Every structure is written in C-alpha cells, then in structure tokens.
Simulated assay, not measured.
Amino acid sequence: MAVAPLTAAEPSAALQQLSGDPQQPESAAAMGDLKRWFNGPDVDKHTAVAASLVAALGLAVAGWGTWKSAQTANDQLKQSQEQQQAASRQQVARVNFWVEGGKTIIANRSADPVGIYFSLLAEDESDVSSPYQWLSKVPPCTKVVLPVRLIPRETPLASLLVIDTEGNGWERDYQGTIQPARDDVSIAVAPWVVDHLGEKDVKVSDSEPCGAA
C-alpha cells in the first residue's frame, strides 16, 4: 500500500496534537471567555452594578463631608458660647458688695447696666439665705449705699443675683464666688413691684475706677 509523502505545509495530526496550537494558549482562551461574558447579554446589568457602586461611593463622600461640616459648626458654636460666657462672667466680676460703716454697698464697675437681686443671710443661721429680692437695674459705673432698713446688721447680705446684658443670671456670694444661677433659684419679689434705687434713703453715686473688678 502506497503512502503519500508528508509535505511541510501539511503537518501530521499527531504532531499537531503533541505540539499544541501556539496561537491559542489557555490564558488567551480564558480571557476570551471573560470578554464574551462581559459583553454578553448581561452587559446592561454589569453597567448598572458599576453605576450603583459609583453612586454609593459618591453618597459616602458627601455624607462624610456633611458630617465634617456639622462637626466644625458645632465646635465653632461651642467656642462662641464659651467666649460669650467668659465675657459675661467678666462683667459680673465687676459687680461686688461690701459693708462700710455698718451699711451695705453694692457697686457696678462694669461699662454696662446690670439687674441686681439680693439675698440675706438668716439670723443665727449663716448657711441659710432668704429668697432673692429685686433691688434695681443698676447703671454702669455706679455705687449704691443701702440703708439698714433694707440690709439689717443681724441679717447681712448673703449673695447677689446679677442679670448681665445678655440676660444670663449669675450668683455672687459674700466670699466672691461667681457661678451661673441655679435653675431652682428662689425669687421673692418681681422686678416691676418695687425699685429701691428711687428711694430717698438709698444713696447712688459714681463708682471709680470704672471697668475694674
């Protein structure tokens, strides 16, 4: 039986099987499968998933920016409140009282008017004080000498309730301690009932130096 000779253009099937096709490696076949999958009928689905991921990332970035802005605003508000409280406290530090010649003197050495209530120590009970009574709205740089009628010697002044220009209440006791007014502070007489600064035996004069504690 005659066998036709092999030519260079017609490699044997066996040789092709042994050597493999160098034009179609397995990695290339896998890449082709991936391309066919991505570009197949579900391409719209893949695009939607990618768009959703991008949108989610954008929302996350926007949310972080909003939170950061709110945090900065809160910090600025807190700082502003602290500065305002410090300024109010400084004003109240310029309002004090003392006893001179048996009479009680209250001085407002701040550059702004303040509302003042006063409280008396109970007789023989130094740790108990009466409800606050309205004195007056004391002008800036003003000294007020109160008669014994208002501040008896046996029940000296215990503390002042000072209302600053911002409407905040502060308590200053006979030891000079200043603190924000308590929520349950007791007030005996409403401001519109009586104003002691207009009474004849209450002496009002300028206080120097003004602006000093």
Rank of each mutant, 00 (worst) to 15 (best):
I105N: 13
P156S: 06
S52C: 08
E123K: 04
P180L: 08
K45S: 15
S129P: 05
L150R: 07
E166R: 06
L18A: 12
Q23S: 14
H196Y: 14
D42Q: 07
A8R: 06
K200G: 07
D183Y: 06
G169Y: 10
G167H: 07
Q83V: 14
D44V: 08
W67N: 05
L15D: 13
P41V: 14
T7C: 01
Q90K: 10
K137Q: 08
A4T: 11
P147F: 01
L57Y: 13
I187N: 08
A122Q: 12
A158R: 01
V194I: 06
T47L: 14
K200C: 08
L57T: 06
D112T: 08
L53F: 12
P147M: 03
T47C: 13
N39F: 14
M1Q: 06
R94P: 02
S27H: 12
A14P: 01
S27R: 13
E199Y: 11
G58H: 00
V43E: 09
N96H: 14
L150A: 06
Q71S: 03
Q24G: 01
V114L: 00
R94G: 02
Q85C: 01
V189A: 00
V3C: 04
R36D: 10
D75W: 07
D21S: 01
S88T: 02
G20C: 08
V49Y: 10
W64G: 11
C210T: 12
V138P: 11
D33E: 13
G32C: 09
A181L: 05
D173L: 05
D206L: 09
I151R: 00
L18Q: 07
S186I: 02
T142K: 02
E208P: 07
L120C: 04
Q91C: 09
H196P: 10
I178Y: 10
W192L: 14
G115R: 02
A62G: 09
T7P: 04
S129E: 12
E123C: 03
T47P: 11
D124P: 04
P139V: 08
H196C: 03
G167C: 06
A87S: 13
K143C: 11
A9H: 10
A73D: 05
A62R: 04
A60E: 02
V99I: 14
V194C: 10
P22T: 03
S12L: 15
Q85V: 00
A86D: 13
Q175V: 08
S119M: 03
D75V: 04
P180H: 00
S119K: 02
V162K: 03
L34Q: 11
A14N: 09
S186F: 12
W170M: 00
K45F: 15
D201H: 03
N168R: 00
A70M: 02
M1F: 14
N96C: 10
T142D: 01
V148K: 05
S207P: 05
K35F: 15
G40Q: 03
D183W: 04
Q84W: 02
R149L: 13
L135A: 07
Q90I: 05
A51N: 05
Q76L: 15
S130I: 03
E26Y: 08
P156N: 01
Q79A: 12
K137L: 09
W170F: 05
P140V: 00
P180M: 02
P41Y: 09
V148Q: 12
E10I: 14
D206K: 11
L59H: 12
V194F: 13
V114G: 00
A111T: 15
S159Q: 06
A9Y: 13
S69W: 13
